[in-house]
Structure formats: structure tokens, C-alpha cells
Amino acid sequence: MTTSRSHFAADLIVTGSVSGPGRLQIDGRVDGEVSVGALAVGARGSLIGTVTAEQAEVAGSVTGSLRAASVTVAPEGFLSGVVEYERLGVAAGGRFEAECRPTAVPALQNGGSGSAARTARPLRARLVAG
């Protein structure tokens, strides 16, 4: 089984909705809604909007809402907004300013939000690892 890969280059600005089952690498800017199997926001990339993914790696910046089974913020990454996750990691130097909502339901199986997915009360956190 081959997973498709897409790449938004540094000079690309996308406004609107992007969806697909594969991996998306963002090195440019996206304003809107992203629903993919795996998301990687590169060090120079930015995303403002709503994200649903099984896996999300943030080396650039993401602002808005992010729902993923696995979320990783890299040393140079910045994540701000509302984050629903099963597993969350913030590397030393990474910035994380978000309302945290741990969930036991995988991101794409529930199709978005819903109180049934939440296993804990939301927590507001501001963390600069390092």
C-alpha cells in the first residue's frame, strides 16, 4: 500500500479546504481547513485554521484547532489554540500555548468534535520547553 505525499512549497499560499488520506508537507502558508492522514508543518511553514489528522508534526507554526491521534511540536515549532490528542510531545525549545483536550478516540474515526470523545476536562497550558 502506497501512501500519497503532497508538498506545499515555501512560496505557496493556500486559502480554503485541503483533504486527502496521505501525507501533507506544508512549507508555505495555509489558511483554512486541513484534513489529512499525516501533516508536517516545516520550519518555515504556517497554518491558520482547523486541522484533523492521525499524525501532526509542527516545526513551523499552527494556530487554531488541531485534532490528531499523535501531536509533536519540534524544537522550533509553535502551536497555539485548541488541541485534541491521544499522544502529545513538545521538544525542548518548542512553544505550546493551547487548551488541551486529551481524547481516547482517534482523530479521524470521530470525524471532528463531540463530547463523547473527551476523557478529561480541558486544560489550558502555556509551555516553552527548554
Rank of each mutant, 00 (worst) to 15 (best):
E84Q: 14
G16I: 04
D31T: 14
L47C: 09
R121C: 09
P106F: 07
E84T: 11
A104V: 09
L108S: 03
A91P: 05
A91E: 14
G22A: 02
A9S: 15
T15H: 09
L79I: 04
A116E: 12
S113M: 12
V41S: 04
S113Q: 14
R87F: 05
R118E: 09
L108N: 02
S113K: 14
A104R: 15
V34C: 05
S61R: 13
T103D: 10
S80L: 06
A120C: 07
A92M: 07
A129S: 15
F78P: 00
S61D: 11
R126S: 08
E86F: 07
G60L: 02
V82M: 02
T63N: 06
P75W: 03
G45H: 07
S70R: 05
V128T: 08
L39W: 05
A116T: 07
E76Y: 05
E99R: 10
S17V: 06
G20Y: 00
R121P: 10
S19Q: 04
S46A: 15
G89T: 03
G42P: 12
G111C: 11
A40P: 03
T103E: 08
V14P: 08
L79E: 03
T2Y: 05
A53M: 08
D31N: 13
A117S: 14
T63W: 01
T3L: 02
P75V: 02
A9E: 15
G32L: 09
I26D: 04
S115M: 08
T72D: 00
V30M: 06
S115I: 06
S65A: 13
P102W: 01
T50L: 07
T63F: 01
S80Q: 11
D11Y: 06
P106R: 12
V51P: 05
A92E: 15
L47A: 10
G81N: 09
R44T: 15
D11R: 14
A74R: 09
A129V: 08
A56F: 01
T72Y: 01
L123M: 13
V71K: 03
L39R: 03
T15I: 09
F78R: 11
I13E: 15
V71P: 03
